[in-house]
Design a protein around this nucleic acid. Structure first.
Lengths: 236, 236
DNA sequence: GCTGTGCAAATTGTATGCAATTTCGATATC
DNA sequence: GATATCGAAATTGCATACAATTTGCACAGC
């Protein structure tokens, strides 16, 4: 039993810091923890009933995947990606995701497609619901579509990269999103799935590229005044 | 001063676990630490004159980037990638590196090109030298070409991904390489740089793709009997 | 001689204690 | 009243102690 490969993203249930990481990750992704929020070791430890050692390990992992930023002797904070970081995140996705779609076309099964349709229908439900809880679920579901695709593509390394990119994209959308979540994105998910089902790798990859462009176009990534501080002081 | 962004790959000199990570990383990359070697916390700690806490943090980072594999209650070992992992590593590189070349064409400066030529000439020297030290230096230099390219491309996230992929590639080549390092790879580095210098993004990206194929083709990635254990037991 | 059991050594997992650093408020001074 | 300075509280960095688990050897039994 222990000989079976384990996908790198499934948390080892025995490792407590991994479980904490997962929980915090989810909280960050669906915006219950806002960018900039401080995550002190003692607080996290108390919350999960573990020592600072374990809490610290979890925060270190989150730091490694860019969801948390730690400053020496100051502590860990939920990442607050700059517009430049946001651009890099989406540039990375533009590079990787068309390839993932292409690989997925080769490997997707009838069962996979059924699960995708289920997922998309659930996503749809959240779009029509009102309230912050539905909004959170919608964001999560929207990202999950991309992650499921990465999972089907069958490359554990790319899957991990996508885990990171999708999670960080959530942060970016939370910070710079204009219209909450672009609901046009949802119909694109359906369209991409259709093209994949038909085996049209070229068009599917192309639509994925446009889809990512659309998500990024919905952001307000103004340079944010590189000279911000000076200006603020001058006018204040 | 502290307002300046810091590239994610430059180690914080104050953070001792980061320095240890870098040292171990280099030792793994140029094969002074063979795949499978055990890295016990106490040993690492003693070697760098720090407590297990710090050593453990370094090993955790290396685990995260796939260079080390830790088994619960057993310890950390230098990764021993399977043929399947090897294929995934190169598949990932095929996806990412052409894009990096394309981005590099846009951003490379005359100074960068000069530095690249220096680097390639040094690489050439190691190829002609004999002995294991030269071999190690050659492997390192060969990977550095790809990392310099990633650095010029100006995307810190992709750069980190490439850091990981190139490091893990070293392990794969150490394990499965037929001819040490494919020396044809070196001339391809020159050719890629030439195309980049001329601004021919399309051909440069294409050659990079072929270059990666050539590296992978030099490997002996036999399926290694996926049913290994059962068969061994049946025949024994 | 071979196999199975059990104990001891070694190693990791976790908690905790102390030192170093930062933060924030109180107080003194202008 | 505003500002600068000092000091206490809080927080992180790191080392160490102890518990839990694994490993390997020794020894008994066959």
């Amino acid at each position: 039993m222990t000989l079976l490969e384990k996908t790198s993203t499934s948390p080892d249930p025995e490792d407590r810091s991994m479980a904490i990481r997962e929980t915090l990750r989810n909280a960050i992704i669906d915006r219950r923890l806002a960018p900039g929020t401080k995550l002190s070791e003692a607080e996290v430890g108390a919350l999960f009933d573990v020592s600072r050692t374990v809490a610290r390990a979890a925060l270190q992992m989150l730091t490694f995947e860019g969801l948390v930023k730690t400053e020496r002797n100051r502590g860990a904070f939920v990442s607050h990606p700059s517009p430049e970081e946001a651009r890099q995140i989406f540039a990375s996705r533009r590079l990787i995701e068309p390839g993932i779609v292409t690989a997925a076309v080769e490997r997707i099964t009838r069962d996979d497609i059924a699960r995708f349709r289920e997922q998309l229908i659930e996503e749809e439900r959240y779009i029509n619901d009102r309230g912050p809880a539905a909004r959170r679920a919608e964001i999560k579901a929207s990202g999950d579509f991309h992650l499921m695709l990465a999972s089907v593509a069958g490359n554990a390394i790319l899957q991990r990269f996508m885990d990171e990119l999708v999670a960080r994209s959530s942060l970016v959308i939370a910070l710079y999103g204009r219209s909450g979540v672009s609901s046009c994105g949802h119909s694109e998910h359906f369209a991409i799935l259709d093209l994949i089902e038909r085996g049209d790798a070229k068009r599917a990859a192309d639509l994925m590229l446009h889809h990512i462009d659309h998500i990024e176009a919905d952001l307000d990534l103004q340079p944010k005044q590189g000279v911000a501080l000076r200006d603020v002081l001058a006018t204040g």
